[in-house]
Design a protein around this nucleic acid. Structure first.
Lengths: 167, 167
DNA sequence: GCCGCGTATGTAATGCTATAACATATCTTA
DNA sequence: TAAGATATGTTATAGCATTACATACGCGGC
């Protein structure tokens, strides 16, 4: 089964496995397989798409198979959920963290282009820090944050401006 | 039908109606009814809960009835969608905006308490501004942003600390 | 070794959220 | 009043997620 994923993905999987082990958690074959599919994907992947692909090698796979695995990966900070897409992406920071490091949560922001559908991930610490601080001032302690936006990526914005100019 | 909602809600509905009219949009009876239910609710309301309540007065109501109306209200900036809850809350800023004012979008942040389920809405301009600027630096222009968090509200946090102390 | 327990996965059914596609009604304005 | 635009009704279906219970697997203590 080795070589099933890209070299980069396999490398990340190895690191993720080491991180889990260090935490007393197990990146089982199933979990590794699903994390691999997510990491290998160019864009966020839906649970049922993961299920379809999983079924190619695992006959009896059903929704709980996938959702339980996703819960595990989310808990371990190995993947993010993009709320607006109900889809999942790998968390590179989570997969490459120092096993001795403390926190499991890696703040990320997602930008979704309306036009081309592409999703850009940002890891702007300042953005999450400002939000965390504002929440704290309201007496609220954040366990996990969702920061996402829909709009136009630079390419599509340029194209839109161009179209407007021609009209 | 007047007096169906709280005084405050009826007032907001009147303002929302004026705003729509000024924009050349119509806050029809159906739209007013659904917006009223949302504004009257203490916490975010799901589409199917709105549907159930709507059916008490409108026999043939079906999911599209509600979702189309929600689309309209979202477009007009009269309600927000809380992604993590798949639920809707009224946008006070949107309902009380100056009809001559420009933008329809009012940036809001939502804090959802894990313990008590309560949802706090913040309108911290700085938070959204920082996010918008960070996105812009990545070449991305934001049309609409989602900024939400799950965690503990001040009350539940205090209670949790108390419990920990006793143990 | 094997028993018991905790963890992980299999399996079937169901619930919740949202949209597609087409029909009908209402409103506007020329 | 006819024509077009907007709003709503109606039926069906798609997509996302969970519940509940059964089975298998791994591992420490006896």
């Amino acid at each position: 089964m080795a070589g099933e994923f890209s070299r980069r993905t396999e490398h990340l999987l190895d690191r993720a496995e080491a991180i889990c082990e260090h935490r007393g958690a197990k990146l089982t074959e199933l979990r590794r397989h699903i994390l691999g599919m997510i990491l290998d994907g160019a864009s966020p992947t839906g649970a049922y798409e993961l299920l379809d692909r999983l079924r190619q090698s695992r006959r009896g796979a059903a929704p709980p198979t996938v959702y339980r695995t996703l819960d595990f990966l989310l808990e371990q900070g190995l993947v993010h959920r993009v709320e607006r897409l109900s889809a999942f992406v790998g968390c590179i920071a989570g997969c490459t963290a120092d096993p001795d490091g403390a926190s499991h949560t890696h703040a990320a922001q997602f930008l979704i282009c309306r036009e081309c559908g592409r999703v850009v991930e940002m890891q702007d610490h300042h953005v999450s820090a400002v939000f965390t601080r504002a929440a704290k001032e309201a007496g609220f302690s954040i366990a996990s944050a969702t920061i996402e936006a829909e709009g136009l990526c630079s390419t599509c914005r340029t194209a839109a401006v161009e179209r407007a100019r021609v009209d």
